Amino acid sequence: MKTLTKEMQSAITPQQAFQLLKKGNERFINNLKANRNLLQQVNETSDGQHPFAVILSCIDSRTSAELIFDQGLGDIFSIRIAGNILNEDILGSMEFACKLAGAKIIVVLGHSKCGAIKGACDHAKLGNLTTLLDKIKPAIDSENTIKENRSSSNAEFVEKVADLNVKLTVKAITERSPILREMIQNGSVSLVGGMYDVGSGLVSFYDEETFEVDSKILAEESLTK
């Protein structure tokens, strides 16, 4: 597998970038790896980097984006934070990755059995973690199909909140970053959400239609910002 050059990066379309990630995950779940020389890539990226994707995922030790998508050095920007939440610093990092460094796709990647989601569902309080988990609250409030046992002991509730957390984050990126919104609208960058199954290794990507959230929920979400 060749190290990405600026010319190679420029030739990749957002749709091709999406396919590169999908094929990488297929290799991962089939216990295959692209043939690459990482030490050679260290040398070849020493003077610059030209990643084709930026991935926002959780800090969970099982969810390394480079491994999940079978990518090498210089291939992806990896942003990791508990609960794959969004803040101004992360938005700024995404703007750098796409506008200045040329990435072609943004992926918001949640995962099953997420500890941050469980903590938020239980309204956990612990130092600065409290502020982070508060950013997951809109997803908890938006989940209105489960009326009882809305805690981490209910696995179905946890997964539904994790799903909504990704979808609301995807929507928030376009709402809170005019730079990224313009790039997405003009087709130079694509934005997609997905969920990683820690049991199988499979990444399931969402269709565009799944980003549509009830207008009432969105109105309530906007009030929390």
Rank of each mutant, 00 (worst) to 15 (best):
F77L: 02
E212M: 10
E212Y: 13
L223I: 13
F77P: 00
I81F: 02
P14V: 05
H50G: 08
I140A: 03
R27L: 15
K147I: 14
G102D: 06
Q19L: 12
N149T: 08
I68C: 03
K99C: 08
T130N: 06
R181L: 15
D70A: 00
S61P: 01
L109G: 05
K22F: 07
G201Q: 08
K137W: 10
I90V: 15
I29V: 15
V192G: 01
E148W: 09
Q41C: 08
T130W: 02
R150S: 07
E221H: 15
V189G: 05
V189S: 07
I29T: 11
C58Q: 03
N186M: 07
E26A: 12
G194Q: 02
V161G: 03
A155E: 15
D60W: 01
P138G: 02
K125V: 15
L73W: 02
E209N: 09
F18D: 05
Q40F: 03
V203M: 03
D141I: 10
Q9E: 06
I90R: 00
A65I: 08
L38R: 08
S215T: 12
E44L: 14
L218N: 14
L73K: 08
G187I: 07
D75W: 01
T224F: 15
I217D: 05
E182A: 14
I184Y: 08
D47F: 12
E44D: 14
N35S: 13
L32H: 14
F211A: 09
V170C: 06
G127Y: 08
L20A: 05
E175N: 13
F211Q: 14
N43P: 01
L73F: 09
S204A: 11
A97Q: 07
K113T: 09
I105A: 05
K23Y: 08
S222H: 13
L191Q: 00
T45I: 02
H50V: 08
N128E: 13
D70K: 03
I140C: 09
E175K: 11
K171L: 15
S61K: 04
G199Y: 12
L67I: 14
T63C: 15
S64P: 11
V161Y: 00
I117R: 02
R181G: 06
N149Y: 06
N25W: 01
E44P: 06
L20F: 09
Q185E: 14
N84L: 01
E66S: 15
L202T: 11
G193S: 03
